[in-house]
Write a protein that binds this DNA or RNA. Structure first.
Lengths: 150, 150
DNA sequence: TTACAAGTTCAAGTGAACTTGAAGTCAAGG
DNA sequence: CCTTGACTTCAAGTTCACTTGAACTTGTAA
């Protein structure tokens, strides 16, 4: 078990393609060292970082957001368990929001669409004050998002 | 309140941009009638259909999948509440899966990453048999997806 | 009559997250 | 010596879900 891992090893261990690892490096999400002839070498820690990235993506964060979160880790010391859990703490809130949204959707699906009552205006009124976790591009103002201002 | 709505009216009532409505039509998700001079006119029913599309997107279905679902509606009769709820029935299952995944992620976040135990292999073993709802592009075999076959 | 608002088509652009392809370097094995 | 495999860079391609822009028609209002 070497101190430093090659990109191929990291890819195999993490399930993330080498091309994606290079891409993450370019985006500043992970870092590598180059010694002999230009090849990337990763400290084993990178695996935890990658795990974090993949978790966060499944939760629904963009790479930009993930980069922001990761930048909160201490820059020149290996992150401790406590460091990691501080980050993941904010994420559980995010998960809770998303779960709540999905439950709202489930209700809407049976109550508003399944029965005959569907009225978009009423549907919106009956679910006030709840913002969707992430506004993608595209149509969004039901389901909690606000209609475009004015 | 007219029998048929223009694209602008539909857009205002649904919160979905006209360009998106044309796009949906091109993809076969909605239909319109043209009478006088080329302009689209939509029966009021289309609003329910659009509501369904937006709901489904928030749940995480792609437009292709949504199209498949919508094609199960009776082709030449206005869908009844029962028709709609038959579709939405399969979707609540989807929501449940996604909620389960998120809860699994929440657990993984605190148990695997927060503490010092994170090992990708173990993490995978400790969450067996669960497939992620939707395989996007990109890295995916933790969190329930299988490693690439062989 | 002129202006405008709302509609039309069609092609091309956008952003996110990667992937693919071409061309090259290097070490080890046969 | 030659091939193979693992790596490198860089530019361009891909998918999804739309949006934007250019050029045009139509109907109503001033």
């Amino acid at each position: 078990m070497a101190e430093l891992l090659t990109i191929g090893e990291v890819s195999r261990r993490s399930g993330v393609a080498s091309s994606a690892l290079r891409f993450y490096e370019e985006r500043g999400l992970i870092r590598s060292e180059r010694e002999g002839r230009g090849q990337r070498h990763y400290p084993r820690e990178v695996l935890r970082r990658i795990a974090f990235i993949v978790f966060a993506q499944r939760i629904g964060l963009s790479l930009d957001e993930i980069g922001d979160e990761l930048s909160k880790l201490p820059p020149h010391r290996a992150p401790t368990g406590r460091d990691w859990s501080r980050l993941s703490g904010t994420w559980t809130a995010r998960i809770d929001e998303r779960v709540a949204e999905l439950e709202r959707l489930r209700a809407g699906l049976t109550q508003c669409i399944g029965c005959g009552c569907l009225s978009l205006e009423r549907c919106q009124l009956s679910n006030p004050g709840d913002r969707a976790a992430r506004l993608g591009p595209g149509p969004r103002y039901w389901i909690g998002d606000r209609p475009p201002k004015k």
